[in-house]
Amino acid sequence: MEVIKIVGTDDTPSVTLDVANEIFEISGRSLPEDVAAFYEPILDWIERYSEEASGKTVFNFKLVYFNTASSKMILDILLKLEEMYESGKDVMIRWHYPEDDEDMEEAGEEYSDIVEVPFEQISYPLD
């Protein structure tokens, strides 16, 4: 599958979807002007990938900020990963949050309550 590599900006996250190197990651800030336009290609990619995935998929979220419109799109990604998991694929979510950021930690907890997929919360220290 083609590699998706989007370099983040002050309002859009960095995205890497790379099957060969087993990197599935969304990180940074997400408040795009048009959330649907930004996330649709990512959702399409995951949809196609879910059919051919053979190994383990560890999907990393390492966001420092997302607006509520993005939160809906993030859930859509998680729901696709949940579908994959339910169809018998080996899928795991890793939700990384800055160690002092309770809101980001809580966001991870809420998502893990909503979707039925192995979900790990990982705090990381700030520079």
């Binding site: 649907a36 419109a69 809906k72 309550d113």
Partner: peptide, 17 residues
Amino acid sequence: KHQIKEGRLSNKGGAGL
């Protein structure tokens, strides 16, 4: 949690959240 699950993104990109 209810709204993020049930709500749909409006054509203007609002999630009602």
